[in-house]
Write a protein that binds this DNA or RNA. Structure first.
Lengths: 329, 329
DNA sequence: TATCCGAATTGGATCGTTCAAGACGGCGAG
DNA sequence: CTCGCCGTCTTGAACGATCCAATTCGGATA
């Protein structure tokens, strides 16, 4: 190939000035149609692509979004992040943004990474997955007016910043109602210790659905850290204590454990997991499915809304999960 | 906050010229120590960070590496990509590079994405995970002298381009030898249809280890597409046909299926999977473990070697897997 | 016919960095 | 003493895009 194709090359080829080419790209409506077509033609013929670095230097915007990739803790639930990232990349691409990855081992380092990314790469925005109570990261970003969205509600202050989340309570409530409709009454719940917003939310959905049906949930739930072994242990405990006929779990890991515990029961105890991970699909575990692709898309929507100065867009999005029915329910 | 801190700000503050500051950053050895310290001091005091866009415009290098994130097919093996990406991000970071994500639904689009990424972002290099026979993507990149590394050997021409891979044959051979040492003789293998380099490699390791021990592998192997159900089906078939006492599988998905098929056998049939996914760890499945973090690190090494013009570095790296022993073996 | 108007186009300046070339002082050799 | 060299530092130009102000041009108006 010959020389690098710049805006000047295109301008010469279309016999117009650089500025006109720039206008065709950034403000097509102010260019006469005939001229515009000639320029567009030259762009295609020459295979011109606007140099992002030069554009960024002038405009101060990089069209880059940062997302964190975490060390895989538990591959079962880890695939959630994986799928979310994929969706994010796809939607961001369509909106003209690219996704840059970063990692950090703790909050302090993560914040110093923000500083670095903002300083050297002039990132346009951040996407955080999951936040804690009193998260120092969101505080840092908000303080500096850096655009960001979280996937996951800030449980302590819902209006603190834009977020996208999936209504976990609605998911577990729906699953519970499905089981109630199938005739179950002793429907147990295995979840996480109180205090995590997500876990409490999921438990609340189950409890509300039972109340709604006039069933007393007392004694029907157990709490533990996430994990297959933990799920199995608690399910055995439940079987011995209250002999539930069905169980809703806060994660697929817990549900897989429960599945191992109920093996051989007759009639089979129904099990419903959460996240609809590929493992659940593989073993036929019914599970509550989060619309991760859509969640990612709405994150990008929110960000572009902020970045393009459109303050009309809502800043909070709560999506509804669906129930993936399989032979365990 | 005040003005943006540029190299000129630092220069004024340290009472030197812009170029001297630039030299402190890029060629410290040509600056007198006293001056260097004064400049470094100013940099720290002011919190200066070199603007990547400006640097890129001058040097033509973006310090950005592209990696593809694929739609999760099978969450069990999908976590491999996940872990690899994490390692890549971490090591690239340490080497002063950042990882940019992209997706593409087919080869043609992927190539056009390359074109776009190179044209607009001036990417420094690509990391491809897995290649096919006669891969059009590597051909395209090689033709244009774009630096890239693949994680996975190009099976048809080992010298075609730099790669990092894990010795699958050594992994299955090691697993097979472990089983032989435990007294097993009828050690089966469940793998993928001939033709995929990875699958053939893994099968060869098992076959060689058996030959080495004087065991005839005839009839002891089965081939199928990847998946839990497929693994279960083939394992039942093997049990009925040749009653193996152990089985080595080409993936954890197949091994999980095999595990379901052998339930209740006495003495228990040993099962060893491949990839040591978190699911394997969770259910206690023995599995061959790929050093993904190291693989990612070596990919970055190879790339920086090429990018920094160091042609001394080897261009092919073959890493040894290890055997994660758990109660299924 | 002269004047004015607004749409379309033009040239110059600018963003922050690195490259290329040159300036400056001190030192040793001729 | 002069010359050239070396180490150190400075100055001007360039990368490729966008912003800004100025200019051209065709057509409408007086």
């Amino acid at each position: 190939m010959s020389e690098k194709v710049t805006i000047a090359t295109v301008a010469r080829h279309a016999r117009v000035s650089r500025q006109t080419v720039s206008n065709v790209l950034n403000a097509p409506h102010i260019v006469r149609e005939e001229t515009r077509l000639r320029v567009e033609d030259a762009i295609n013929t020459l295979g011109y692509r606007a140099n992002q670095a030069a554009r960024q230097m002038r405009t101060g915007r990089s069209r880059l979004i940062a997302a964190r990739i975490e060390p895989t803790r538990d591959g079962i639930n880890g695939s959630v992040l994986d799928r979310f990232l994929h969706g994010l990349t796809e939607t961001a691409d369509a909106a003209g943004y690219r996704v840059l990855l970063y990692t950090a081992s703790d909050d302090e380092r993560e914040i110093s990474t923000y500083d670095d990314l903002l300083g050297t790469y002039e990132l346009d925005a951040f996407v955080l997955v999951g936040t804690k109570h009193g998260d120092p990261r969101t505080a840092w970003l908000a303080e500096r007016d850096v655009p960001f969205v979280t996937f996951g509600r800030p449980w302590d202050a819902l209006d603190a910043h834009p977020w996208v989340d999936v209504d976990g309570a609605a998911g577990t409530a729906g699953a519970t109602r499905h089981l109630l409709a199938a005739g179950h009454r002793r429907i147990a719940f295995i979840g996480w210790p109180a205090g995590s917003g997500v876990g409490d939310d999921r438990r609340a959905g189950w409890r509300d659905a039972l109340h709604e049906a006039g069933v007393d949930p007392t004694g029907l739930h157990r709490e533990t850290e996430d994990g297959i072994a933990e799920g199995e242990r608690l399910m055995r405990d439940l079987l011995a204590a209250v002999a539930p006929t069905a169980v809703v779990c806060a994660s697929d890991s817990l549900a897989l454990g429960a599945l191992q515990a109920i093996r051989g029961t007759d009639p089979p105890v129904s099990v419903i997991g959460f996240d609809d991970t590929p493992v659940a699909a593989a073993v036929g575990l019914a599970s509550i499915s989060q619309p991760l692709g859509e969640a990612a898309a709405r994150c990008v929507d929110l960000l572009t809304g902020v970045l393009d100065g459109n303050h009309e867009t809502p800043t909070h999005v709560l999506l509804q999960p669906s129930l993936a029915l399989r032979h365990t329910a």
